[in-house]
Simulated scan of single mutants.
Amino acid sequence: MKRNSKLSIALHVLGHMAVKPEEPFTSEQMAAFAATNPVVIRRTLGQLRGAGLVTSERGKLGGWKLSKAPDAISIADVYRALDERLYVGNKGGDENPPQCAIEIGLAGAINQGLERAENAFQHSIESTTLEDLAAALRQ
């Protein structure tokens, strides 16, 4: 998964949040988790808040929290909320390897699903020809 995409950042910080769902996390804390800027975290989580996946509270004891139990939020929910494509593999290469156990686990799980989806997609289009497309256009 591309490490600087909104989806990878969101899944990374949500993974940390899921470990301690009752604890509010500041943008600064999550930026440290994902090795990015707190503004990036706030923008990304703002989209997730709009989709009802996280909440935020201002103030000294405030921060970001999951709005539902971790088992009630799927990666697909996050994917749809961000409207961003997934990328297979570590696009950062050897210079930017995953460092966190949560990020490594997420990458493995997502890549397995993407490989199955890619295989199914390729299998489904193997039997579709240009004639099939032309016939559909004629109707």
Score class of each variant (00 low, 15 high):
G50A: 07
V19G: 04
A120E: 11
T129F: 10
R42H: 07
C100A: 07
N119C: 12
G89A: 07
L66N: 07
S5E: 01
K65R: 13
M30Y: 07
K68R: 15
A117E: 09
Y87S: 14
A136H: 04
S27K: 02
L130Y: 07
V40G: 00
E103R: 10
A101D: 09
N119G: 13
S74G: 12
L14E: 02
E118P: 00
I102F: 08
R43S: 14
L66F: 11
K20I: 03
Q122G: 06
N119P: 10
L82N: 06
S5L: 00
L45A: 01
D77G: 09
G63C: 04
L114K: 06
L130Q: 13
L130R: 10
G52H: 01
S5K: 00
P97S: 04
E57P: 04
T128W: 02
N111P: 05
V40C: 00
A10N: 03
L14A: 05
Q99N: 10
L133E: 14
L61C: 04
A31G: 02
K2T: 05
K2S: 07
M17P: 08
L133Y: 11
T44F: 06
A34K: 06
S67K: 13
A51V: 00
T129W: 12
I75A: 11
M1N: 06
I125T: 05
G15K: 02
F33W: 07
R42C: 07
Q99S: 11
G113F: 09
I104M: 14
Q99W: 13
A107G: 14
K20R: 13
L48S: 11
A35H: 15
A136G: 06
S74Y: 11
G62L: 06
L61T: 12
Y79M: 13
P24H: 00
I102E: 08
E28F: 08
S5N: 00
N90T: 01
K20A: 13
F33N: 04
G15T: 02
V19A: 11
Q47H: 10
T55H: 03
S8K: 05
S74V: 09
A18V: 02
A136R: 08
V78Q: 02
A10G: 01
Q139R: 15
V40M: 02
Q139E: 15
G59V: 08
N4A: 11
S67G: 08
V19F: 04
L137P: 00
L86K: 03
V39F: 02
R116K: 10
A120L: 08
G15I: 06
I102W: 03
A117G: 08
T129R: 09
R138N: 10
V13W: 03
I110C: 08
G105H: 04
A101F: 05
P24L: 00
A51C: 00
N111K: 09
